[in-house]
């Protein structure tokens, strides 16, 4: 399998006035195409920082990050935006859908910026909504949808540009446990059936168990990186 993500000796230091606050203090790992990985840790462990770096929203202070064969180190702001649009789909804890905008148009959003024709946009966004099981809710606004449905719309939006990676930052944080399980089943299905690489940031063990590999962060360092033993689940 291909090395989709290759992180080497990454550090991230925030400057607050004259004080340097290290968020990540040198971590290295690789993620292959088609993996389902959880990144775990307490708040302040650096897991959100590594998520931002993996998502090309932020750049490391030192070290290198290769995504799909591209070194992101010397890329400009707009080149990073281009990578986000083609390679990465984001799913956030707070859904981050545009208010007063229909589900279909929310899903269309990434295609506005990647030069897809109007007809193609409509077709692809309908298809993406059908994958997450919301064919009939295309014209509903986020305020007319339940939390679980909103998160499905967000997942459809992450899928619509055929990005090889989905980065999910506490995707079930705002959902009840039943809905959380449904969302995690959806991720599992996408990972198995469409071979989409899924990287999940969470602090809940139950949620992390859906993945097949868990990387644990503590104080800006990786403390463990191991396969999940699936009790009663087929691999």
């Amino acid at each position: 399998m291909d090395m989709l993500i290759k992180v080497e000796n990454i550090t991230k230091i925030y400057r607050v006035g004259d004080v340097e606050v290290p968020a990540i203090r040198g971590v290295s790992f690789t993620i292959k195409s088609g993996e389902f990985v959880s990144i775990m840790g307490h708040s302040g462990s650096g897991k959100s920082t590594i998520m931002n770096i993996l998502g090309c929203l932020d750049k490391p202070t030192e070290g290198s990050y290769m995504l799909d064969g591209v070194d992101t180190k010397n890329l400009a702001r707009d080149q990073l935006a281009d990578i986000r649009s083609r390679k990465i789909g984001f799913v956030f804890q707070g859904f981050n859908l545009l208010a007063r905008t229909s589900a279909l148009e929310n899903v269309e959003l990434p295609m506005f910026y990647s030069g897809v024709s109007v007809a193609e946009r409509k077709r692809k966004s309908r298809y993406a909504l059908s994958i997450v099981g919301l064919d009939d809710r295309g014209h509903h606004h986020p305020s007319q949808l339940s939390g679980g449905q909103q998160q499905r719309v967000a997942i459809a939006r992450a899928l619509v540009n055929n990005a090889p990676v989905i980065l999910a930052d506490e995707p079930t944080g705002n959902l009840d446990s039943k809905t959380s399980n449904e969302i995690m089943d959806l991720f599992t299905r996408l990972n198995r059936e469409s071979n989409i690489t899924i990287i999940l940031v969470t602090h809940e063990e139950d949620i992390a168990k859906y993945s097949r590999r868990i990387i644990r962060f503590l104080d800006g360092l990786i403390v463990s990186d191991e396969k999940v033993k699936k009790a009663g689940r087929k691999k």
Binding site: R77, A81, R84, R86, F90, P110
Partner: peptide
């Protein structure tokens, strides 16, 4: 949100 989905 627009930036995260690729707006330049």
């Amino acid at each position: 949100i627009r930036m995260s989905v690729g707006a330049k």
